[in-house]
Write a protein that binds this DNA or RNA. Structure first.
Length: 487
RNA sequence: GGCCCCAUCGUCUAAUGGUUAGGACAGCGGGUUUUCAAUCCGUUAACGGGAGUUCAAUUCUCCCUGGGGCUGCCA
């Protein structure tokens, strides 16, 4: 099946857009079809420079790049690939013009010279009379010669669609099921703007016809425009694609997910350190479920089990809590070598020594099960690359039942016990043995010696275990840190 | 206001004409543990309301209520 994602380059890729793209990508992949990226740049005023790059990059980073349409070449330049282009709507103007002319000839569309001032006034009046704001068709029966004359005189105009008002348009949406719309409630939509650009409605129908889209997967906000699109396909005499409208992503207050209430830019989550696997896993679960109790899915698994039939109709609140959990799950699934490779540049940026550290993999392994985001790594590994400054306040922990007065004794105990571990046998097991064998006679509890040891070695309130840190630090460094004076 | 759509724990969701209405996240309690995290166990918490159909309705129908989307020469 050929599916497509068709965003406007008006800013970064919306997180809801990424979910829609994911659904479309999954359908294309599971049918061994093609996922097309088309850029809907028909609103010159709202276009943002660089937005197309961001959109493509976000899809790529997420792991769902387009197969056809707008994409990057090997050098990172935006190119178009495929036989149904161009894939930027701004490059298809003659095509839209041609088909809107056809509509004009067949009586499915008409010229409209109304000014926006008149339209505003009209709507205002309609609102006051509690009527549906709709174009009043003032220009629908303009004589041909008058129309021609006004156009020739350079008068600004648009082309509107003529809706058959007596009809009821019905459709069976892949997700929403049977839908029906009464013709007299549908507005005579503008198809071609006065600047010669098409509106979404015209461009969508023409493009998805010529690009041979089998299924249009888009957000639910398009549901009420659907009859216009259906009518256009019919007016052109073209087959209608299947439509699957997907439920919206919502703010906490259940309004349509918007910028004001949080970050809606998909790349924000990626740059913040969320794994694409976690992000897509989270998004796919918003509105869809596999019918089993499985919650963690790779993209490959999703390709085989995803289905639009199991997407339901109500909107889903975009609540990050579960994303954080999924992030943790995915972080822990990364092979440790890969994990180390990912964080190494980040850690090296702050601590040059990490770049040549032969034990980096072991240190990375220590934090993998407790880290949430890659950027936390430098902070979490800092004590391996710079000497900590432990304080008495931190060591004398009431929770561990440690009195300040006991601290020197405890540290002496640690020095003595660790001192007897042979240099060539410095490993976790022998460190454990050296300390725990002497524990009963010392009168200290485990926590009373291990908490101070950990703090002396790391200077931190939280960190991986004392034994593991000591092992990786090596004997001489461990002994050195135990000898540091407390502040 | 008009049109269209939707409605199960706080959130994401499952299931069913007869069930103790299931799971996950979060919350809470506990185990493990030198801290934090991770992990394990337990636990709080939902069918919006009213009619109708039926022996039986959370499930089917209708109405209401609530929520959302659209209502641009935006997409």
């Amino acid at each position: 099946m050929r599916t497509r994602f068709a965003p406007s380059p008006t800013g970064s890729l919306h997180i809801g857009g990424l979910r829609t793209a994911l659904f479309a990508w999954l359908i294309a992949k599971q049918t061994k079809g093609t996922f097309v990226l088309r850029i809907e740049d028909t609103d010159q005023a709202r276009e943002v420079v660089g937005a197309t790059q961001v959109i493509i990059r976000t899809l790529e980073l997420s792991g769902i790049p387009p197969d056809e349409g707008v994409m990057f070449d090997t050098t990172g330049e935006i190119v178009e690939k495929g036989e149904y282009g161009p894939y930027h709507q701004s490059k298809r103007l003659p095509l839209y013009r041609k088909y809107v002319d056809e509509l004009l000839e067949n009586g499915h569309a008409y010229h409209c010279f109304c000014t926006s001032e008149r339209l505003d006034a009209m709507r205002k009046k309609q609102q006051e009379l509690r009527l549906a704001p709709m174009y009043d068709r003032q220009c629908i029966n303009l004589p041909k010669d008058e129309t021609a004359k006004r156009i020739a005189a350079g008068e600004k105009h648009v082309i509107r669609m003529k809706i058959p008002r007596e009809e009821t348009v019905t459709y069976d949406d892949v997700i929403y099921g049977p839908l029906s719309f009464k013709g007299h409630t549908i507005d005579d939509q503008v198809l071609l703007k006065s600047d010669g650009f098409p509106t979404y409605h015209l461009a969508h129908v023409v493009d998805d016809h010529f690009m041979k889209t089998d299924m249009v997967i888009r957000g639910e906000e398009w549901l009420s425009s659907l009859p216009k699109h259906l009518l256009l396909f019919r007016a052109f005499g073209w087959d209608t694609p299947k439509y699957a409208h997907v439920p919206l992503l919502l703010n906490k207050d259940r309004t349509k997910l918007s910028k004001r209430q949080g970050d809606v830019a998909a790349e924000h989550y990626l740059t913040k350190g969320y794994l694409p696997e976690a992000l897509l896993n989270f998004l796919v679960l918003l509105g869809w479920n596999p019918g089993t109790e499985q919650e963690i899915f790779t993209l490959t698994e999703l390709i085989s089990i995803f289905s639009l039939e199991r997407v339901h109709k109500s909107g889903a609140v975009f609540d990050l809590e579960k994303l954080d959990w999924l992030q943790g799950q995915w972080m822990r699934r990364i092979p440790v070598e890969e994990f180390a490779a990912r964080i190494r540049p980040l850690v090296t940026e702050k601590y040059t020594a990490a770049g040549t550290d032969p034990d980096f993999l072991k240190r990375a392994a220590l934090i993998q099960e407790r880290i949430t985001f890659f950027p936390e790594a430098p902070e979490m590994l800092g004590y391996f690359y710079e000497s900590p400054s432990p304080t008495m306040a931190l060591i004398a922990s009431p929770k561990q039942k440690i009195e300040p007065a006991q601290v020197p004794t405890i540290i002496d105990f640690l020095k003595t016990q660790l001192g007897i571990v042979p240099d060539d046998n410095w490993n976790r097991d022998s460190i454990v043995a050296a300390i725990e064998q002497a524990l009963p006679a010392s009168g200290f509890k485990k926590g009373q010696v291990l908490w101070p040891l950990r703090v002396m070695l790391t200077g931190r309130e939280y960190s991986p275990g004392a034994y593991e840190v000591a092992e990786l630090l090596g004997k001489s460094e461990t002994m050195k840190r135990l000898a540091v004076a407390l502040s």
